[in-house]
Write a protein that binds this DNA or RNA. Structure first.
Length: 907
RNA sequence: GGGCGCGUAGCACAGUUGGUUAGAGCACCUCCCUUACAAGGAGGGGGUCGUAGGUUCGAGUCCUACCGCGCCCACCA
């Protein structure tokens, strides 16, 4: 057994311990038929990511579960990896190029992708390195990337399967378009934010008339693409106008006035301009009335050739110009301030444009069905439960998923077109969906074949994460015929191994993630799980809260209010960061953070260190003899007590773990270790430290405490544990302690409670009378309760030591002299103290205090009397509760009598 | 428009199925550098649990309404 350094210095141990556990492959999992599997796939951070508090929380939770389950005998696998994050990564590299005045268009697709890969090689593992600093027990040998060769196979395979099943189609629809990223986005990628804007009222002149129809719009520039004006069919104001023609201002285009139920007569003027190519509602109306779809915008958001005089100007410049021009023509009636929800690009926050374009979609309704049922039937459970409703609500109203993106970084669609057969009006014609580029068109034999230029939505690869990370679909690479079969055999063996692993570890146990990811990822993984694996991807979904600053704002780079986990690690240590974070994270609640909160974990680390130091220091000579705790019968009072406490604590701990109540688990251990083990037991142990049994118990409880602390604070616990046991291994490889019911003794714990209470009463009394620790006091305890007297007498050494007593006597209650320093104990005893220095007694103050106590206790007694006289209560409340009340009333009465006695003795 | 979460001590928060006098942390006050620990120890003060009703023998906990704060969803031109 080694001694510990006087000062706890996390800098000296944390990195060392992590490297040790990683090197020794404690994190590696494999199929093991003798164990049950427990697997988690990491929510793959973006390759562009740098560690923030959200990651720290998310991964600490997973790490605790992984280590805990491993200790509980499961084969724990934590699958790590990163996400190629199409748009985000492309943006990062484009920004970098822009500094050198280079655009992606100027260098071309191939060169650009080369540069992105270079960037990925250089910076893509930053987040992985940072996760190591958090001490994550990921199986790093398995680290996956969503654009790895094998993983990409899975993505293409899935596309092809869904296409063949008729669940993927291509067509012209209104989608969300980001003019800055110049790509289509799914609905989830274009979150709506309340935005302050204006409602512009514009006159549309009626053809061959002096009259006007006034329409209201928030986006006047879209009027360039108007192809109708719509009114409600029952709106009396406009009934006569239906079917007439108006002249679209600025464009001088005649357009019809149509009637449609969609129009709300109470909004604006009740007449609405219809722009089928730039508004989702208008799109539907356009289809209904067979209107023209006029796209007036270029992909970058500037006006195109359909925009008349405004061609070339940016959408917002065009808006300004149009307003000015309408004003000049006296066609602008008024402008009102107007708040409305506007979609924004989730990557660059640019206002998106609803945009009519040709895209690829996945039909979602058929995929959603089993995914809905699995959650309804409880085969997948959300923690906290309330997310179930959010999930089901979204799934039941699911819309088709736009999966094509007009960027370069990502999985290119496995779609090829035959130039000859291709027909823009029939997406299936001349289309070849295949893994490899076909040499000739299977229909016409032409050789002019091109691949679709789009790539797939990043989430179209992430939704396969729980099984594609295991190598699914296990396609064997087409081996060169010239190569010999050894390679091939090796490859088959690998594939077989992967298949077994997938079978063993899938479905995974739990997915840990943030609420904003439920639609993007959780829901889609469930659908993919059923579609491609025929089973759920995970049993539990643990949704944790959002990390906020101490004023409740979401932590974000742009607000500048984020706390950098790496800075916390430098200042307080990894263990301190983890323990602080987890102990303030109530399940599913948001987390409010400030830097000071990490002192909590740091102080606890320090406490653990010092307590351990004391124990190792005292036990260093015993080599080996501490290993065994004697029979229960041979244990002294305090030794038996701490064993009882430990085991009942462990019981509570296990049940909180089972419910994912990790903050509760952390606080249970904290309370036990600090306030029972350190505050009381270690102090008790000093009295019997020469005793073999006590030394064994000290060692035993410390060693087991380190085990249960390990999932939360892996580094400090491994360091101390190795020094204590002399074993060069990690606690991770050790079993979780078993609850030993034999040691749990409620009666004993109650007796200890009496001892502690009396001790606290005496300390309190000393404090009040300002008696210094070195001034020992003479204590007489008066009670008629033989049990209490015997408990105190039996354990008098403890009391004498902990309460700094000179002489300790017992007396009958009546015989006690209460004229000196008396106090009434909550245990029902009267305590009198005689101290050597006893000057400056303020009897007036004492009297006030005791009167206040009497008043309080009288109120309680009145309340209880009333309750116990209530017939209904006696009839309906459980007998045990009534008994408890009666007992407590009796105790209160006794206490009151004692207080009165003390009061009367005061002059 | 629909849904969800929160409101408990000066501060930021726990409180599992309703059951003694509502809890720890930080901060504050008093005392103590006692041979593991001042990043510590021993004590202490501080709350009519957002408001108003209701159910119940009993409500921080369940129900209803309302008031504040925050979040999510929705085709509010």
């Amino acid at each position: 057994m080694e001694e510990l350094a006087k000062k706890y210095s996390f800098k000296d141990i944390e990195e060392k311990q992590y490297l040790f556990t990683e090197e020794k492959s404690f994190f590696h999992a494999k199929t093991n038929s003798s164990k049950k599997p427990f697997s988690i796939v990491i929510p793959p951070p973006n390759v562009t990511g740098i560690l923030h508090m959200g990651h720290a929380l998310n991964n600490t939770i997973q790490d605790i579960l992984i280590r805990y389950k491993k200790m509980r005998g499961f084969e724990s696998l934590w699958m790590p990896g990163t996400d190629h994050a199409g748009i985000a990564t492309q943006n990062v590299v484009e920004r970098k190029l822009a500094k050198g005045g280079v655009t992606r268009d100027s260098i071309g697709r191939e060169k650009f992708l080369e540069l992105v890969w270079e960037w990925k090689q250089e910076y893509g593992s930053t987040i992985i390195r940072q996760l190591r600093r958090l001490a994550c027990a990921c199986d790093w040998q398995r680290t996956r990337f969503t654009m790895d060769e094998g993983y990409s196979d899975a993505v293409l395979e899935v596309f092809i399967r869904l296409y063949k099943k008729g669940l993927i189609y291509r067509g012209n629809y209104i989608i969300n378009w980001c003019p800055r990223c110049r790509t289509a986005l799914s609905d989830e990628e274009a979150p709506h934010k309340d935005t302050q804007g204006f409602l512009y009222y514009i006159k549309y002149p009626i053809k061959d008339s002096k009259e006007f129809v006034i329409v209201a719009t928030t986006r006047p520039e879209t009027m360039l693409g108007d192809s109708a004006v719509a009114v409600h069919p029952k709106d009396k104001r406009y009934k006569s106008l239906i079917g007439q023609t108006v002249i679209l201002p600025l464009m001088d285009r005649p357009i019809k006035i149509i009637a449609d139920d969609f129009v709300d007569p109470d909004f604006g003027t009740g007449a609405v301009k219809v722009t089928p190519a730039h508004d989702p509602n208008d799109y539907v109306m356009g289809k209904r009335h067979n209107l023209e779809f006029i796209n007036v915008l270029n992909p970058d958001g500037s006006c195109n050739e359909n925009a008349g005089d405004y061609q070339g100007s940016d959408r917002y410049e065009a808006r300004e110009a149009i307003i000015e021009d309408l004003k000049a023509r006296k066609l602008l009636v008024k402008v009102e301030a107007h708040q409305h929800a506007v979609g924004h690009c989730y990557r660059c926050h640019t206002v998106i444009e609803p945009y009519y374009s040709k895209q690829w979609f996945v039909k979602m309704k058929p995929l959603a069905k089993p995914a809905i049922e699995a959650v309804q039937e409880g085969r997948i459970k959300f923690y906290p439960q309330r997310w179930t409703k959010v999930y089901l609500n979204w799934m039941e109203n699911i819309q088709d998923w736009c999966i094509s993106r007009q960027i370069w970084w990502g999985h290119r669609l496995p779609v090829y077109y035959c130039a000859k057969c291709r027909d823009e009006n029939d997406y299936k014609k001349g289309v070849i969906v295949s893994l490899q580029k076909p040499d000739i068109c299977p229909e016409c034999g032409a050789k002019d074949i091109v691949q679709d230029v789009d790539v797939l939505d990043t989430w179209f690869s992430s939704w396969l994460w729980p099984f594609a990370t295991f190598g699914w679909p296990f396609r064997e690479k087409s081996t060169d015929h010239s190569q010999q079969s050894t390679d091939h055999n090796q490859q088959s063996a690998d594939t077989e191994k992967q298949k077994r692993e997938l079978e063993y570890f899938y479905p995974t146990a739990v997915l840990v993630t943030a609420p904003e990811i439920i639609f993007f990822w959780v829901a889609r993984m469930i659908m993919a799980g059923f579609e491609f694996m025929g089973d759920i991807p995970f049993k539990d979904v643990y949704i944790h809260g959002t990390v906020r600053d101490d004023t409740g704002r979401k932590m974000s780079k742009s607000l500048g209010n984020s706390i950098d986990p790496l800075e916390i690690i430098v200042d307080y240590g990894t263990d301190a960061l983890r323990f602080s974070l987890i102990s303030i994270t109530a399940m599913g609640q948001d987390i409010y953070l400030s830097k000071e909160k990490f002192e909590f974990g740091r102080n606890f680390c320090n406490k653990i260190w010092n307590a351990s130091r004391f124990i190792l220091m005292n036990l260093k000579e015993d080599s080996g003899s501490w290993q065994k705790v004697s029979n229960k019968e041979e244990l002294c009072f305090s030794d038996a007590w701490i064993l009882s406490r430990f085991n009942s604590t462990l019981k509570k701990l296990n049940s909180s773990f089972a419910q994912y109540r990790l903050n509760e688990s952390a606080n249970i251990i904290y309370e036990f270790f600090w306030h029972q083990f350190c505050d009381w037991y270690i102090e008790f142990s000093k009295l019997s430290i020469e005793n073999k049994t006590t030394r064994a118990v000290l060692y035993n409880i410390l060693e087991k405490s380190l085990r249960v602390l390990h999932p939360f604070m892996p580094l400090i616990t491994d360091e101390i544990w190795q020094k204590a046991t002399g074993q060069k291994t990690s606690i991770m490889s050790q079993p979780w302690p078993e609850v030993d019911e034999v040691y749990i003794d409620a009666g004993l714990e109650k007796e200890m409670r009496i001892l502690m209470d009396v001790c606290c009463d005496i300390r309190n009394l000393r404090n009040e009378k300002n008696i210094k620790p070195k001034d020992k006091a003479d204590i007489t305890i008066g009670s008629d309760d033989q049990h209490i007297i015997s408990v105190l007498d039996k354990n008098r050494e403890y009391l004498i030591d902990l309460a700094k007593i000179q002489t300790l006597n017992f007396a009958g209650e009546k015989d006690l002299d209460v004229s000196i320093n008396p106090t009434a104990s909550s245990t029902g005893c009267l305590i009198m103290m005689k101290a050597k220095r006893d000057e400056g007694r303020d009897t007036q103050k004492e009297k006030e205090k005791i009167l206040k106590q009497i008043k309080e206790i009288s109120e309680h007694i009145t309340r209880k009397n009333k309750l116990l006289n209530n017939e209904n209560y006696l009839k309906k409340a459980p007998a045990a509760v009534v008994e408890k009340e009666k007992r407590s009333l009796l105790e209160l009465k006794q206490e009151k009598a004692k207080l009165k006695k003390i009061k009367n003795a005061l002059k």
